[in-house]
């Protein structure tokens, strides 16, 4: 049975997750399974992308100044999609920061350690969350307003065509574990509160936070998935897979940054700089 403090940690993390992330797995599944009165607009070629850009501009890019928006249309499709990805990433990093602050003990850490945990954790967490928005055929975007097909993303020119396919492959394996939002909340907290990130000063404090989250996650999985005793070790393996996925993603972004005319958002530059 779960101790009361573990139960309260499970509940606290689930509540913080639902509060801070505008999209979650339950919501995404409603869109992906067609159980909504407003199905997402399917983006599968250049024409449908242009249509979506007009129809879903704010959801795809937020409040980009209108001047920037018109010059955006003159840029090639790959550069525009890269910008949408960046917008979604910046938004998720912002949400993850708020979620991290809700993890008991995180806000009391030295500020440099908080920065380090986010720098190394946000992309792993982002790709774990992204899986909720994916199925084998594509990716839900623009807060559920759009669905970009996997084939269209694969058809882009290199190196952009290499960007999403590894995330789909990870997502298909990860989604097979059938986690729900209450499981994912603890999994994301465990990703962020990781005691072996480079350059941490108060490792023992972070390890204590990590230990309580991992303990809660193990008990949560036993209670929420009683028929799948191997789920916990399988999920721990996913932490290693995510680290590999981020390393490869960071290399690809550095390559794009060097060889393409695609500027990188300052927040993402901070995260990638001297990462691995």
């Amino acid at each position: 049975s779960q101790k009361p403090d573990t139960k309260s940690l499970v509940r606290q993390m689930h509540e913080a997750y639902l509060k801070h992330f505008h999209m979650n797995k339950a919501k995404a599944r409603v869109f992906l399974t067609g159980k909504t009165s407003t199905p997402p607009f399917v983006i599968h070629d250049m024409d449908t992308l242009q249509h979506a850009e007009r129809k879903l501009h704010t959801q795809l890019l937020g409040n980009v100044a209108s001047g920037d928006a018109s010059s955006l249309q003159e840029r090639e499709v790959e550069a525009r999609l890269f910008l949408f990805c960046q917008y979604a990433s910046v938004e998720t990093v912002t949400e993850l920061t708020e979620f991290a602050k809700a993890v008991p003990g995180f806000a009391a850490l030295d500020l440099n350690d908080q920065v380090t945990l986010l720098k190394y954790g946000v992309y792993e967490a982002l790709f774990a969350l992204l899986a909720s928005c994916m199925n084998k055929d594509g990716l839900l975007v623009a807060r559920g307003g759009g669905f970009i097909t996997r084939e269209f993303l694969k058809s882009l020119r290199k190196p952009f065509s290499d960007m999403m396919e590894p995330k789909f492959q990870f997502a298909m394996r990860f989604n097979a574990l059938e986690l729900d939002d209450s499981d994912l909340a603890l999994f994301v907290a465990a990703i962020i509160c990781c005691g072996d990130r480079p350059g941490l000063s108060d490792v023992s404090h972070i390890e204590r936070i990590q230990e309580s989250i991992i303990h809660a996650l193990r008990l949560q999985l036993l209670s929420n998935h009683p028929d799948n005793a191997l789920l916990f070790p399988k999920l721990l393996q996913k932490l290693a897979d995510l680290r590999q996925l981020v390393t490869e993603h960071a290399e690809l972004v550095q390559e794009i940054n060097k060889t393409e005319d695609a500027s990188l958002h300052p927040l993402l530059q901070e995260i990638y700089r001297d990462m691995y």
């Binding site: 990093v93 920061t97 440099n112 927040l267």
Partner: peptide, 21 residues
């Protein structure tokens, strides 16, 4: 580290700061 991660630092200290693209 804080100097090299000004936006992350700002997000950690101030929840209402927007990060525009």
């Amino acid at each position: 580290l804080k100097e090299k991660h000004k936006i992350l630092h700002r997000l950690l200290q101030n929840s209402s700061s927007p990060v525009d693209l």
